[in-house]
């Protein structure tokens, strides 16, 4: 795929406490030609963001153990890393628009891979320009 080179220039951070879902999300993103980093909780995610400046997308679950849930993490990332695009997924039916940070994208669990891929490709195109 010709796009792969452009894709490889930025990375996606997947934050998911369920190892099975995390493995699948990472495989899905890598198969599409992106670099994927993984984290199982918010603290780990913050450390990865500090270490890897090429991360341009945060793809996080809401329900997570630890000091922050996915929505708090999303808001923190919006404040500290404004260029990072935020994608949130959850099995909770009641994640409202008010819970989401500005310009955040929400994907209900289980999410269709195609729509996640479309969003990631859209971001890649934006960065490419």
């Amino acid at each position: 795929m010709g796009q792969s080179f452009a894709h490889a220039s930025y990375a996606v951070l997947v934050v998911e406490d369920d190892a099975l879902l995390l493995a699948e999300a990472v495989d899905m993103i890598e198969d599409a030609g992106f670099i994927a980093y993984e984290a199982r909780n918010a603290d780990e995610a913050i450390r990865k963001l500090e270490r890897h400046s090429e991360i341009r997308v945060l793809f996080t679950d809401v329900d997570m153990p630890g000091s922050m849930d996915g929505l708090k993490l999303a808001r923190a990332v919006r404040d500290r890393w404004p260029p990072v695009t935020i994608m949130v997924t959850s099995g909770h039916v009641d994640v409202g628009e008010n819970d989401m940070p500005e310009n955040g994208l929400f994907f209900a669990k289980p999410y269709p891979p195609a729509s996640v891929m479309k969003a990631l490709n859209g971001i890649a195109a934006e960065i490419g320009n």
Partner: peptide, 9 residues
């Protein structure tokens, strides 16, 4: 939803 996500994975 979680179970379905596991099934999907």
């Amino acid at each position: 939803k979680n179970t379905l996500a596991m099934v999907q994975a």
